[in-house]
């Protein structure tokens, strides 16, 4: 078991945002987290990364309880993430952004630079390596965040809406990138609004609704689950079917 969440609960005052969610991932798995805005998926995601500490429950990473560890402690132990709104180092070059990630595993600047170039090659950003990160558009910055996370040589990569704000073509490229990363044996957790992304990538899906986990299974099982259809996908799926596509572009 690479990553395990046991009854993770997060409350803000009287409001329970995540209610006793459990999941376990083996090496090479892809887990999708879906649900409407405010359903609690991002909060759960941030409990996994250490940006938020769970009110109760446990997060186990590689057999070690990391529930109360900081994001940097979890990064050392093999967890890497991207952000919903890209958080690149704006004044640094694309190469330097990735080097920050690579420095987690080496203190040698030349080695970090070499590793960063390898990763940039993998994600297709070599051509812009000397550009300032702040000059990239949204797709480039999202890609850069993934590159930077990969440079920390993680066991598990958590992507927070890596496709949000991308055009259909850009989404296809991003899906290809995620597939490519998965083929290297990477374990992934993906928060996503766009259903077709989840269905085409994830092996297991958790559906959130008002803080509760209302379904958990393969994408096929989940989309057929009556609770999911009525609580979330029902209205949307119907509306989307009428508009001629599956998924919410927002």
């Amino acid at each position: 078991m690479l990553l395990e969440a046991i009854n993770v609960t997060k409350t803000f005052g009287a409001l329970t945002v995540v209610n006793a969610v459990s999941v376990s991932l083996n090496k090479g798995d892809i887990l999708g987290l879906i649900g409407p805005n405010g359903a609690g998926k991002s909060t759960f995601f941030n409990c996994l990364t250490g940006d938020l500490l769970p009110t109760s429950g446990q997060v186990i990473l590689n057999g070690e309880d990391v529930s109360v560890m900081t994001p940097e402690e979890r990064a050392v132990r093999g967890l890497a993430r991207s952000f919903q709104v890209p958080q690149t180092f704006e004044t640094m070059s694309v190469l330097e952004n990735v080097m920050i990630g690579a420095f987690l595993r080496t203190s040698d600047t030349a080695k970090a630079r070499r590793r960063a170039y390898e990763i940039l090659d993998l994600v297709g950003l070599v051509d812009v390596s000397s550009a300032v990160a702040g000059s990239l558009g949204t797709p480039g910055r999202k890609r850069l965040e993934i590159a930077r996370a990969l440079a920390t040589d993680p066991d598990i990569l958590l992507l927070d809406e890596a496709m949000a704000g991308l055009t259909a073509t850009e989404v296809r490229h991003a899906i290809e990138l995620v597939r490519k990363i998965h083929q290297t044996g990477m374990t992934l957790v993906i928060v996503e609004h766009i259903m077709e992304v989840i269905i085409s990538l994830a092996q297991q899906v958790i559906v959130f609704h008002q803080g509760h986990q209302i379904a958990h299974g393969t994408p096929q099982e989940v989309t057929r689950d009556p609770a999911v259809v009525s609580a979330y996908l029902g209205k949307r799926a119907a509306a989307n079917a009428a508009r001629g596509f599956a998924g919410d572009p927002a």
Binding site: F89, G101, T152
Partner: peptide, 19 residues
């Protein structure tokens, strides 16, 4: 490198293991 990263975006730096 780490100091510049912290200056630019401390949260992102921490997510990459920067103490």
């Amino acid at each position: 490198f780490y100091l510049r990263a912290i200056k630019d975006n401390e949260r992102a730096a921490r997510s990459l293991g920067v103490q």
